[in-house]
């Protein structure tokens, strides 16, 4: 299996990274073999320092719920090992677009995705792609912390367990918690219920939970909107650490947050379509610095300077 050797550089040096087993398991499934995994091979990963390649290639993507368009004509690339921020007013389709990237939208009845979403060159919506496998490669953190009503340990171990990851589970849990900057806070109470943690800790637990399955990308849907500034700061620091290893896409309402952490920013706005529906679309996509200091579009400028929104 080629992807084993490809994935290795991103895992910490240790004899048996769980990603191996997770992906070899996938290889046992012939459908998955023909599907996304075989093409997920990130060959460029070893070229450090060079031009970063696109993880996601979003081309003319539109999403509609029961025939009503929510967002349309979205076209931009999401680069590897970068943080891409999606900003814009409420109802502009940022979260909708985010949920297209790991096929969480499949779970909403009546939701249809048009256009092309490429993931490392493979069509994410191709007929042979298994959405369950997609979600093991593209993790997601939600707006409200959603730990499982179980112990901290079981929260982290859930992903590896359902994916049938072999290897020392204790080790996997510890590594995920360390990467989630949570180990020192919780190492003495791994068996405690996760509901007893603070909101910020719960959200870091959700991030760590997502890291335990060694994803390629982490999608974050307003991860700090329910948190206080100190917890928010911790999560932002964590994101900057994580981008060394993962690509991150974050939806945020907090423009300072986008300016602080992201490398690229996509600004969405809401327009009225011909049928008088409110439809979101991308106004501007560029380096974050440019979007915030020298935006090309007057609507972006009005939004980022706080004149509207």
């Amino acid at each position: 299996m080629t992807q084993e050797t490809e994935i290795t550089p991103m895992t910490e040096p240790q004899p048996e990274p769980p990603a191996h087993d997770a992906l070899s398991e996938a290889a046992a499934d012939p459908a998955a073999q023909r599907g996304v995994e075989t093409h997920v091979v990130p060959e460029h990963r070893e070229r450090k320092g060079g031009k970063t390649d696109a993880v996601f290639h979003i081309d003319g993507v539109g999403v509609s719920y029961s025939g009503k368009p929510a967002v349309r004509d979205v076209t931009f690339d999401i680069a590897e090992n970068e943080i891409t921020a999606l900003i814009g007013p409420s109802g502009c389709g940022k979260s909708t677009l985010l949920r297209c990237l790991n096929r969480m939208n499949d779970l909403i009845p009546g939701c249809e995705v048009s256009g092309h979403v490429g993931f490392h060159g493979e069509d994410l919506y191709g007929p042979r792609v298994d959405p369950v496998r997609v979600r093991t490669l593209i993790g997601m953190v939600f707006q409200k912390p959603n730990p499982f009503p179980k112990s901290i340990y079981d929260n982290i171990a859930f992903g590896p367990r359902v994916l049938g990851v072999k290897g020392d589970l204790d080790e996997i849990v510890e590594r995920a918690l360390r990467r989630g900057a949570l180990w020192d806070d919780v190492k003495d109470r791994l068996k405690d219920n996760a509901y007893g943690m603070s909101g910020g800790q719960q959200q870091r637990l959700c991030i760590a939970r997502c890291l335990a399955i060694e994803p390629d990308v982490i999608l974050m849907d307003e991860p700090c909107s329910a948190l206080d500034p100190i917890s928010t700061g911790k999560i932002e620091d964590l994101m900057l650490e994580l981008k060394e290893r993962y690509s991150i896409v974050i939806v945020t309402h907090n423009m300072q947050q986008a300016a602080r952490v992201s490398d690229k920013t996509a600004f969405f706005t809401v327009e009225l379509s011909e049928e008088e529906h409110r439809v979101g679309r991308v106004v501007e996509f560029d380096d974050t610095e440019k979007v915030f200091t020298n935006p090309a579009d007057p609507r972006t400028e009005a939004y980022v300077t706080g004149k509207v929104g």
Binding site: T136, M140, F142, N146, P149, V162, C210
Partner: peptide, 10 residues
């Protein structure tokens, strides 16, 4: 909780 589990590839 369902979303959380599904997003982990369950």
């Amino acid at each position: 909780i369902r979303e959380g589990a599904l997003a982990l590839g369950a």
